[in-house]
C-alpha cells in the first residue's frame, strides 16, 4: 500500500497570499514562509491535511 508520505504537498504560488496561517497551525512546524514563498519539509510532514483546511484561499494541495 502506498504510504501517505508518497504524496506530494505543495502550495501554489499563483493562489497563495503569503499569510502564514498554515505555518502557525502546522502541528509539526514543518512549513516555512520566507518573505513570500511557502515551503514544506516533506520528510517531516505527515500529510495530516490541517494546513489545507486552515489556508483561507485553498493554495495547498496534497496528491
Amino acid at each position: 500500500m502506498p504510504s501517505k508520505k508518497d504524496l506530494h504537498i505543495e502550495s501554489s504560488g499563483e493562489v497563495c497570499v503569503s499569510c502564514g496561517a498554515c505555518v502557525g497551525i502546522c502541528p509539526l512546524n514543518c512549513i516555512y514562509l520566507d518573505e513570500w514563498r511557502i515551503g514544506f519539509d516533506e520528510d517531516v510532514c505527515t500529510r495530516c491535511n490541517i494546513c489545507v483546511r486552515a489556508c483561507p484561499v485553498g493554495a495547498i494541495t496534497i496528491r
Binding site: 502564514g20 505555518v23 502557525g24 497551525i25 512546524n29 514562509l33 483546511r53 486552515a54 483561507p56
Partner: peptide
C-alpha cells in the same frame, strides 16, 4: 514573530494550537 510563532516553537514553548483555537481569516 507573530502568528507563525516559529521562535517559540524552536525554543520548545507550548504555542501549538488546537484546531478549535484558530480562525482562518481573509
Amino acid at each position: 514573530d507573530g502568528f507563525e510563532s516559529q521562535v517559540g516553537r524552536w525554543a520548545g514553548l507550548p504555542t501549538n494550537l488546537q484546531l478549535r483555537d484558530m480562525d482562518s481569516c481573509l
